[in-house]
């Protein structure tokens, strides 16, 4: 059974492209969310295996959402994305419970597989 993915980003264009990338690497996109609050409720409802999470969300900070998701009873794997670079966030990226960060500009089938299978 393919891994089930929830894509969280306030930009619909990005969610669409990211969905295609996920399907390309054999994942099943089960849902999308545009805000941090929506991400938390959709994650509880859909129980995805993987959450592709944008850091800059209109309501909550993506890093806080990641920390909140990782404290759930059966936490999903969280991959953070942002149109900013990792250097723009500093050490906060490493202690929020996510398995890694990919700058949106570097997001590709290869970089996703590399991170998920590391």
């Amino acid at each position: 059974m393919p891994e089930r993915v929830l894509i969280v980003d306030d930009h619909a264009g990005f969610r669409r492209v990211a969905g295609r990338l996920m399907r390309e690497i054999g994942r099943q996109v089960v849902g999308e969310a545009g805000t941090g609050a929506e991400a938390l409720s959709e994650s509880r409802r859909l129980k995805p295996d993987l959450v592709l999470l944008d850091i800059q969300l209109p309501d909550l900070d993506g890093l806080a959402v990641a920390a909140s998701l990782s404290s759930e009873p059966e936490p999903p794997t969280v991959v953070l994305v942002s149109s900013r670079d990792a250097v723009d966030y500093g050490p906060r990226l490493h202690d929020c419970g996510a398995i890694g960060f990919i700058a949106k500009a570097d997001l590709s089938a290869e970089s996703l597989i590399a991170l998920l299978e590391a």
């Binding site: 990005f14 990211a18 949106k104």
Partner: peptide, 13 residues
């Protein structure tokens, strides 16, 4: 930045 990133990803697709 957001638009360009999405465009970049679309081009990769």
């Amino acid at each position: 930045q957001q638009q360009l990133v999405t465009l970049l990803l679309s081009m990769q697709v």
